[in-house]
């Protein structure tokens, strides 16, 4: 059974911060830009307590949401990414 592709994620290693994770998962990007991308893909980690700090069990996405996963959001007919 082949699993369908889903949004990629990692979990933090002990003592990793945004900078360390950015270097691990987006090594080709300048660090600050990589951190900005990671934060924009992981707002669930920012909109909580303690904001922006990791716990060991967190899920960190390493890419934006995938095409076709947005759902038919009310009032957003025709928005790219909705299905």
């Amino acid at each position: 059974m082949t699993l369908s592709r889903q949004r990629g994620f990692v979990t933090p290693e002990p003592n990793e911060d945004w900078r360390a994770i950015a270097a691990r998962v987006l090594p080709a990007e300048p660090t600050d830009a990589a951190i900005e991308k990671l934060r924009s893909w992981n707002l669930h980690l920012l909109a909580r307590n303690p904001p922006g700090e990791f716990t060991g069990s967190d899920v960190l996405f390493v890419e934006p949401p995938l095409e076709g996963t947005g759902g038919a959001l009310p009032g957003l007919d025709g928005v790219p990414g909705d299905d």
Binding site: P64, L73, L76, V79, P80, G81, D82
Partner: peptide, 12 residues
């Protein structure tokens, strides 16, 4: 709900 750089919408 946010539209990401690739045009896909998700929510926080």
């Amino acid at each position: 709900r946010l539209r990401h750089e690739n045009g896909v919408v998700d929510a926080v």
